[in-house]
């Protein structure tokens, strides 16, 4: 089953006429982890924002779990797309504890289920004893785990990760990469990971796409490489 399908996606920012993403097509199967590589300005983060519904494409369509979320006529709001996202700087709500941050996304879950889901998520990222801490009381690596748990808690159909390692020390990265892959595989989630570091992709992803500019234009090209882990 195709969990994510993108057809002929084109996007440009209001002020520039050159498209950042031009006629981009791509699809993903359930449980796949795909890395998107590219230099800054190549449109890889914009692609995530388009999938999440935080930007509107000029042209093209996106389907999630075979249901259209954006077409020429249709636009489904971000909160109704069942997409989870781990932001570059994690964006944990500073006025909420770890527990409240995790419970925040469980809007469509019953009260009893919420508790068990919270426990399950904290166990998954091995942060059970940090439940009552505030984000500023956590280290960078701990914040990242909580951000991941928060995004996974509502059981989204697709998980998007935008440069999740950019705020971490290099020696911490290696251990976290392996841990992340094992968490993702354990949950069976379909995931897109955007990064500029090839090592991230090699350690975590099943396949990768490189986005780059051709010549002076902002035309993005795709280069697929299959990597079976």
């Amino acid at each position: 089953m195709k969990i994510l399908e993108i057809k002929g996606l084109t996007f440009s920012f209001t002020k520039s006429k050159e498209p950042v993403i031009n006629d981009f097509s791509f699809s993903m199967n359930k449980g796949e982890i795909v890395g998107i590589l590219g230099q800054s300005g190549s449109g890889k983060s914009t692609l995530l924002r388009l999938i999440a519904g935080l930007e509107i494409p000029n042209k093209g369509a996106i389907h999630i779990a075979e249901a259209p979320v954006v077409t020429e006529k249709l636009f489904v709001q971000p909160e109704d797309r069942s997409v989870g996202m781990v932001f570059q700087d994690y964006v944990l709500f500073p006025h909420m504890t770890v527990k409240d941050n995790l419970l925040f996304g469980l809007v469509r879950t019953s009260r009893n289920e919420r508790k068990s889901r919270l426990k399950e998520m904290l166990e998954l990222v091995q942060m059970e004893e940090f439940e009552l801490r505030y984000p500023h009381e956590l280290s960078g690596g701990q914040q990242q785990r909580i951000a991941l748990a928060r995004a996974l808690a509502p059981q989204p159909k697709v998980l998007l990760m935008d440069e999740p390692f950019s705020n971490l020390d290099s020696d911490l990265k290696d251990s976290i990469r392996l841990e992340l892959r094992s968490i993702l595989k354990k949950t069976g989630i379909t995931c897109i990971l955007v990064t500029h570091d090839r090592n991230d992709v090699e350690a975590i992803c099943d396949r990768s796409i490189s986005m780059s500019r051709i010549g002076d234009g902002n035309v993005s090209s795709i280069e697929k490489r299959i990597r079976i882990k």
């Binding site: 709001q77 971000p78 909160e79 997409v83 932001f87 964006v91 709500f93 925040f104 996304g105």
Partner: peptide, 12 residues
């Protein structure tokens, strides 16, 4: 960012 995070977690 916080708004986007909240909306992706299912809140209007």
């Amino acid at each position: 960012k916080y708004t986007e995070a909240s909306r992706l977690l299912g809140h209007g």
